[in-house]
């Protein structure tokens, strides 16, 4: 990217003794952006975050803050705030002392005393009046918010969140993620968020990077990544998906005819060259009442999810997943999809 962002990584590599954790990661994150690194465990997302924080130094490549290389700048001079998965609250300090700790090394905003700053932040994270508590007397969600307030107190340039909610239960996670998003928007602080939960990544981010095996697979807005996955990995990691591998047989108008194991499908996804190709169809786009691309499947398992039911079905050698609000008791079904809903990878 041409523009100089708030934070940029340029071909960052990191290898440990016998593993390559980051294999050339390049990112450009804009001022005030809520940017998420998402991927399975071991994909390098936490290492990327730690490299930004200065807790790991890259084997190769550059990390720039406002266009300036920060190589060799220790963590304490980087102006970052970190919230860890474990919250890492200092157990021997009260909530107030925890939040105030960073203000030993940075002045509070003009016209504010340290105490006022701490009070403001505790108000911001809905913990008014909790300053005197010991951290271990707080619930997980409260501890998480103290950690957030502590990280924000010295007004960091960049806020780094490393799976801050993975230790919490699902319902609390959803509440807190709205709160984090609200606070981030309110303060307009550039934020890098690490999570393995793709649903969370879609819900909270302005943009996200899907990582796998030390590389960035795709960067985009949640909608772009969901609707136009760039790689097979992204297609199957972000949301559920059905992959079809076939061979191009020809074109009919805007549609391409693809043969998958002898069955011909019509796919409408721009101009396509001949040869082998893979396309994907989301479970919600595979329906029993589609007019086109119909094929017979044998239903294997049904999972009732409330507003919908998820079905696993066998089509020849391949296992497919689809969703439908209606119950299907029969073992055999005919499914189909709109040529428009197929995405070529």
């Amino acid at each position: 990217m041409g523009s100089v962002g708030k934070l940029s990584l340029d071909g960052v590599r990191k290898s440990f003794a016998d593993t390559v954790a980051l294999d050339g990661v390049s990112l450009d994150i804009a001022e005030g952006e809520f940017f998420t690194l998402v991927g399975p465990s071991g994909c390098g997302k936490t290492t990327t975050l730690r490299t930004i924080a200065g807790l790991e130094s890259p084997t190769d490549g550059r990390v720039r803050f406002d266009g300036e290389d920060v190589a060799g700048v220790p963590t304490e001079d980087r102006d970052v705030g970190i919230v860890f998965q474990s919250y890492a609250l200092f157990p021997h300090m009260t909530v107030h002392e925890n939040v105030a700790y960073g203000l030993n090394f940075a002045d509070p905003p003009e016209g504010t005393s340290v105490d006022e700053r701490v009070t403001d932040l505790l108000d911001l994270v809905d913990l008014s009046g909790m300053g005197g508590r010991e951290p271990d007397r707080l619930s997980g969600g409260q501890q998480q918010r103290v950690a957030l307030a502590r990280a924000l107190a010295p007004e960091p340039e960049i806020l780094l969140l490393d799976e801050p909610m993975s230790a919490l239960d699902a319902r609390l996670r959803e509440t807190l993620r709205r709160q984090i998003k609200r606070i981030q928007t309110e303060l307009d602080v550039t934020t890098v968020y690490v999570t393995h939960d793709q649903e969370e990544a879609l819900a909270i981010s302005d943009r996200l990077a899907v990582m796998n095996d030390g590389r960035v697979e795709q960067v985009g807005t949640p909608r772009e990544v969901y609707e136009r996955p760039a790689t097979e990995f992204v297609a199957s990691f972000v949301g559920e998906n059905n992959l079809f591998r076939g061979e191009v047989r020809g074109t009919e108008g805007t549609e391409t005819v693809v043969s998958v194991d002898g069955t011909e499908f019509r796919v409408d996804d721009g101009d396509l060259a001949g040869g082998d190709l893979t396309f994907c169809v989301r479970p919600e786009d595979l329906t029993v009442d589609a007019d086109t691309n119909r094929f017979d499947v044998a239903v294997d398992t049904a999972e009732f999810l409330g507003e919908t039911t998820r079905y696993y079905a066998d089509w020849g050698e391949q296992s497919l997943v689809f969703r439908s609000p209606d119950p299907h008791d029969t073992e055999r079904l005919t499914l189909g999809f709109d040529p428009d809903d197929a995405r070529v990878l």
């Binding site: 924080a53 220790p74 001079d77 860890f84 474990s86 890492a88 960073g102 950690a147 960091p156």
Partner: peptide, 15 residues
Amino acid sequence: IDDSLVESARSLGAS
């Protein structure tokens, strides 16, 4: 001692 305690303190500006 959890490494993240040390790392948190450093990110907050402590040497």
